[in-house]
Amino acid sequence: MRVLAAFSKAFDGQIITIHFPDRLLPPIRDNLAVHSERMGFTPSVVGLDLEDISRLARDDDPWWSSVVKDAIVLGGRRPEELPSLAGTEVHG
């Protein structure tokens, strides 16, 4: 289930958040590491499910608020659309 691939400017453009099943996170991290070293940035890959996103939005989490405000969506839905989708299957 791919729900969001976004680049967040919240931390000087060095945070990449990608929301995929946990089994896909290691290959994504590995692939990003190869390219990011060449491009001179350090990516941080964060895996969240829709329940996590709903909780972060409900709790008005500062990190999630910055993602909603600053994310440049590369694929999938906008971050602010995701909390209402908890419990449903979402495809980019």
Rank of each mutant, 00 (worst) to 15 (best):
F11R: 09
F11L: 12
D12G: 00
G13Y: 02
G13M: 05
G13I: 03
Q14W: 04
I15T: 11
I15H: 09
I15Q: 08
I15Y: 12
I16Y: 14
I16M: 11
T17H: 10
T17C: 08
T17K: 08
I18T: 10
I18Y: 05
H19M: 15
H19C: 14
H19Q: 14
H19Y: 14
H19A: 10
F20W: 14
P21H: 09
P21T: 09
P21K: 10
D22Y: 07
R23K: 15
L25G: 14
L25M: 14
L25C: 13
L25K: 11
P26E: 04
P27V: 03
I28A: 12
I28D: 05
R29L: 07
D30K: 13
N31Q: 15
N31V: 15
N31L: 13
N31T: 15
N31A: 15
N31E: 14
A33P: 00
A33E: 04
A33D: 03
V34L: 06
V34T: 06
H35P: 03
S36Q: 00
S36A: 10
E37K: 11
E37L: 11
R38H: 12
R38E: 13
R38I: 12
R38D: 09
R38L: 12
R38P: 06
M39C: 10
M39G: 11
M39E: 13
G40A: 09
G40K: 07
G40V: 10
F41H: 04
F41D: 02
F41S: 00
T42S: 04
P43D: 03
P43I: 01
S44T: 14
S44G: 10
V45L: 09
V45H: 10
V46L: 07
G47Y: 03
G47E: 07
G47A: 07
L48G: 01
D49R: 02
D49Q: 03
L50G: 08
L50W: 07
E51P: 00
E51D: 06
